[in-house]
């Protein structure tokens, strides 16, 4: 099978021209250099691996740093949550009817014991308006008959604070404003 394939080249070159065999030479140094693995590739590869490693290191540093930041922000959320809770509790207690009634009493307010209305459309007075009578006073009877332990606790908590706040507030009372130099205006830039 293979014999004709071998036979043909031995004949064909002879037919065209005499076989001129180029002289054997040493592979030129340039070619050899070209064939050798290039240092640049190696550097690229090693550099790439190094870069990946460094990037990974930095990322994990950043991530773990982020964890501390997350943790500190979470602490902040918790603390703000505490503040919100504390203020919310105070608000609910302060808005209790006992507290509002006591505040109204301090302001000298009384209960309207004879309901009457003013109709806006025609100015008519509906009902029979009357003076405040016996039933108008607040507090309605003893103030402690409808107890509120939350409000009592809040009042106890706030009592010393109010005193502390009270003193500087008086010092900081605004001085009388004079208009000798024109209207006072805020300094802005």
């Amino acid at each position: 099978m293979s014999s004709p394939a071998i036979a043909r080249p031995t004949i064909a070159p002879d037919r065209r021209r005499p076989a001129v065999r180029p002289p054997l030479t040493v592979v030129p140094a340039r070619e050899a250099r070209k064939a050798r693995p290039k240092l640049a590739y190696a550097l690229w590869t090693v550099g790439g691996v190094g870069a990946i490693l460094i990037a990974q290191l930095l990322m994990s540093v950043a991530l773990s740093h982020g964890a501390y930041e997350v943790s500190s922000l979470k602490t902040q959320i918790t603390e703000l949550g505490w503040q919100k809770e504390s203020i919310g509790e105070q608000l609910e207690t302060l808005s209790s009817p006992q507290n509002v009634a006591a505040a109204a009493h301090e302001l000298g307010m009384v209960i309207n014991s004879s309901p009457a209305y003013l109709r806006l459309s025609d100015g008519a007075v509906l009902g029979q308006p009357g003076q405040a009578g016996d039933a108008s006073s607040i507090p309605l009877g003893p103030a402690d008959v409808v107890g509120n332990s939350s409000a009592d606790a809040l009042a106890a908590d706030n009592a010393p604070v109010a005193e502390e706040d009270g003193a500087p507030a008086e010092d900081a009372a605004p001085t009388p404003v004079t208009f000798e130099n024109g209207l006072p205006s805020p300094k802005t830039h």
């Binding site: 209790s96 009817p97 006992q98 009634a101 507090p139 309605l140 009877g141 003893p142 008959v145 409808v146």
Partner: peptide, 18 residues
């Protein structure tokens, strides 16, 4: 109604005592 409830409690307390 919270406010009405308080009013009623306060009034009945006052009268029971009185």
């Amino acid at each position: 109604d919270r406010d009405l409830q308080w009013f009623a409690q306060q009034r009945i307390a006052e009268q029971v005592i009185k």
